[in-house]
Design a protein around this nucleic acid. Structure first.
Lengths: 224, 224
DNA sequence: CTAATAGTGTCTCTTAGACACTATAAA
DNA sequence: TTTATAGTGTCTAAGAGACACTATTAG
């Protein structure tokens, strides 16, 4: 016997670091339910063009946030009878991590919001967001994930501040540098240094061209 | 505009340890496509009775394998245009880890198969199985997951052999015991020991009553 | 006694964590 | 000079890994 097919959507937690805090990208809904509300970017799977849910996520990110994220991972699937007023629904959720965008986002249908202020969002999007932030914080402890928050060129000091801002904790400089070197995902840009400050210039680094999106260590960063 | 709703199923990788090797529980399909083939236990979401996908997974496990697993976790969602001949489909997959069942499974619609021999399964079930086994091996390195493979009472030696069989590597006894003690998920059964072998009896242990399903360490077990 | 497995003591070597030190810029 | 940040050297304490030792049963 057959059952009614659930509603299937793909929702994306798009994260970046602005003003020293994690921000999530939100879009304004143009349909009921929750018409006019700010939610995580999401949409239906287009069964005629999306090869799979990953492609649907990349398409939605492109259409709603106008960007292509090199780091886009499935988070988990949220489902239930009551999470959407239209019926039994299922959301395959993803999280993306991108460098701070330059300038204000184009259009009125997209904005960045600090994740710590987002206690309530329509549907179960607050829970999805919370899960994504937890995942990112946890991966930050033992992986190179925060490198995706950095611009093309950056210093080790800036990378450490990024880790610290994601974790909400300070790290020892020596230990941090040892760890990053082990992960082997960034490289010096020969001869490139910062300039301008009244202090010693810093070596600029970039992601290694062929490094995997994520490298993991076998132990956690020491936090507090 | 609306799109055709994808086919939604829940599939479960049910794992146990028999004869020193990981085995997966398979059920025989009684419908097309792949009629008569052995596949991962799975089924439709029953939108009228399942509160969410977790409940659907528990129901399917109960109906098809006749058991209730204390450890049942979402693995990930597999989807695509071509993974099921009936159309664009999506499978929310789960993995469960249970002690070796006593006796042969009841019925002809269920059997255990060694995971290493399962190179090909209908749909993308071989890939789902591979992903689950990877996940279990990886969690074995830093968590108490294999405790769910143990019967109600067991020795530390048996637990170590379980870890070793899942990992396919030998572990140092001292280090292993230190690690298990840190995880703090099992306890001695006062006065209970093995008997019968021509050697010193071993203390019997059990899961702690209120321990969480999974405890994690901050570093990996040392393997080769 | 031997054989076999259970369980503990402990030494060494690695590494994390702390922190002091030097380096180099601008004012 | 001072101030600020970049970057390195290195000591120490904790812990992992190795492995030898004792304990307790049956035969």
């Amino acid at each position: 016997m057959d059952f009614e097919r659930p509603i299937v959507t793909v929702d994306i937690v798009l994260l970046t670091l602005r003003d020293s805090h994690l921000h999530a990208g939100l879009t304004r809904r143009d349909k009921a339910p929750a018409l006019g509300a700010w939610t995580l970017p999401g949409g239906w799977v287009h069964t005629d063009q999306d090869q799979d849910a990953d492609e649907a996520a990349a398409r939605i990110l492109r259409d709603k946030a106008g960007l292509v994220s090199p780091y886009l991972e499935q988070l988990r699937t949220f489902s239930g009878m009551h999470r959407d007023s239209r019926g039994w629904s299922l959301s395959v959720s993803y999280y993306a991590v991108v460098p701070e965008p330059v300038g204000e986002p184009a259009g009125e249908r997209f904005r960045w919001a600090p994740v710590d202020g987002l206690r309530s969002l329509p549907f179960d999007h607050a829970q999805i967001l919370r899960t994504a932030v937890e995942r990112v914080r946890s991966k930050t402890l033992y992986s190179s994930l925060p490198v995706h928050l950095m611009p093309a060129e950056f210093t080790l000091g800036a990378l450490q501040r990024t880790y610290e801002q994601v974790l909400g904790a300070t790290l020892d400089k020596r230990g941090f540098r040892r760890r990053i070197e082990e992960l082997d995902v960034i490289e010096e840009i020969p001869g490139a240094f910062t300039s301008g400050g009244s202090h010693r210039p810093a070596q600029l680094y970039r992601k290694k061209a062929h490094a995997p999106a994520l490298k993991t260590a076998t132990s956690n960063l020491p936090v507090g």
